[in-house]
Simulated assay, not measured.
Amino acid sequence: MPGAMREIIDGAASFDRSPDLGVSEFRALDGGVTTWAPPVQPRRLKLQWASMELGDVDHLDRLARRLDAPGPVAVVDPLSRNLLSGAQGAGLGATAKWSVSGSDIILYGGDIGPHVPVTVSVESLHVDGADLYWNHPSWPGFPVTPGMELTWWAYGLMQSTAAISAHRLEWITPTGTVLGTSASPGNGPMVEYVPLFTGFVRPALRFSARGMWDMGASVLAMGNKRPELNTAAQPPAGEGCPSYSITGYSHEASPGDGRYRDIGLELVEVTR
């Protein structure tokens, strides 16, 4: 659960994270073909471990049986190169994916259509500047665990020569209380370790001057991606960090060595 996530030490033998396209095909008697696809294609995760330590199995078992909370659960995908969603990572679509400090910043364009670029207009400044936040669709921020290394970079606004005084990461407890904020001056990627007692992180920018710029691409990723991003022409596309519901769970006990065998876990993205 968010705020109580656990790293599974044993590597998965298989890891399928294909989206559920849900496409149906209809064939008419005259040979014509009609296809239908749902407007939302949720991601499904299917993981299989050959063996696992008892403590990790107990953690998955409690989640699967919803002993502590009804869900949904958080999964930080170890293969994800950008925890932001596709549209958010590209600076497109509805402006609800961002929030601003007061009336200092106005976002334009994104609510016209899903592929319309978002424009950031800094209208005024407080003494410390104006802040723009990247929101998670389900939680107060993106789920993290203490000690995790993160890279944050608003690449598109940097390319637009926006007046950025600092990249910022706001640390939030599992109950939603803000612990504090780390800041990195300049336009380059910011790399930080998650502090103790943190359950979520919310990336942000602070502007130091008025102006209007294209939002463009941004990336929030696990690990130190600074060298990769500094040399890349474009940050990786957003893959998202959605909330999931557990739809399947299985394991076989091996009492002889205290481990479990053939652990299977299936999850589906919770859509809204």
Rank of each mutant, 00 (worst) to 15 (best):
S121P: 01
S121C: 02
D111H: 05
D104F: 05
V118Q: 01
N135F: 03
Y133S: 13
D104S: 14
V100S: 05
S121Y: 08
E123N: 11
D111K: 07
W134G: 01
Y108K: 11
D128M: 12
H126Y: 15
A130S: 13
H136S: 08
V100Q: 03
W98G: 08
L107S: 05
T119L: 07
P117M: 09
V120I: 07
V116T: 15
S99I: 07
L132T: 09
P137N: 00
P137G: 00
S101T: 09
V118E: 00
L107I: 04
H115T: 11
Y133G: 11
E123Y: 02
G129M: 14
V100A: 05
G129R: 12
V120W: 00
A130I: 08
L125P: 01
S99L: 06
A130P: 06
I105A: 06
P117G: 11
P114K: 05
D128A: 14
S99T: 04
S121M: 08
H136I: 10
V122M: 03
L125Q: 12
V118N: 03
V122W: 01
P114I: 03
P137T: 02
S124R: 14
S124F: 07
H126A: 15
H136T: 09
G113Y: 07
S101Q: 12
W134M: 07
V118M: 03
W134A: 09
Y133T: 13
G113S: 13
A130E: 04
D111A: 03
L125K: 08
S99W: 02
Y133A: 10
H115L: 09
G113T: 10
I105S: 00
I106C: 10
P117C: 12
S124W: 03
G110H: 02
V122G: 00
N135L: 06
D111F: 06
G102D: 10
V120A: 05
H115G: 09
V116H: 11
P137D: 03
V116M: 13
V127C: 14
V118Y: 01
S121Q: 14
P117K: 06
S101Y: 01
V100K: 04
S124P: 04
D128P: 08
E123D: 14
D111P: 00
P114L: 05
T119A: 10
V122P: 01
S101V: 00
S121D: 13
G102R: 08
H126S: 15
E123G: 09
H136V: 05
Y133F: 15
D104Y: 10
D111L: 06
V116N: 12
P137Q: 01
D104A: 15
N135P: 04
H126N: 15
I105C: 01
A130D: 04
P137I: 02
V116P: 03
Y108R: 12
S103R: 13
P137E: 02
V122K: 03
H136F: 07
G110K: 00
S101P: 06
I112N: 12
L132K: 05
W134P: 06
L125G: 08
L125H: 04
H115R: 13
D111V: 02
L107T: 04
N135Q: 13
H136M: 11
G129S: 15
I105M: 02
L107W: 03
P117T: 06
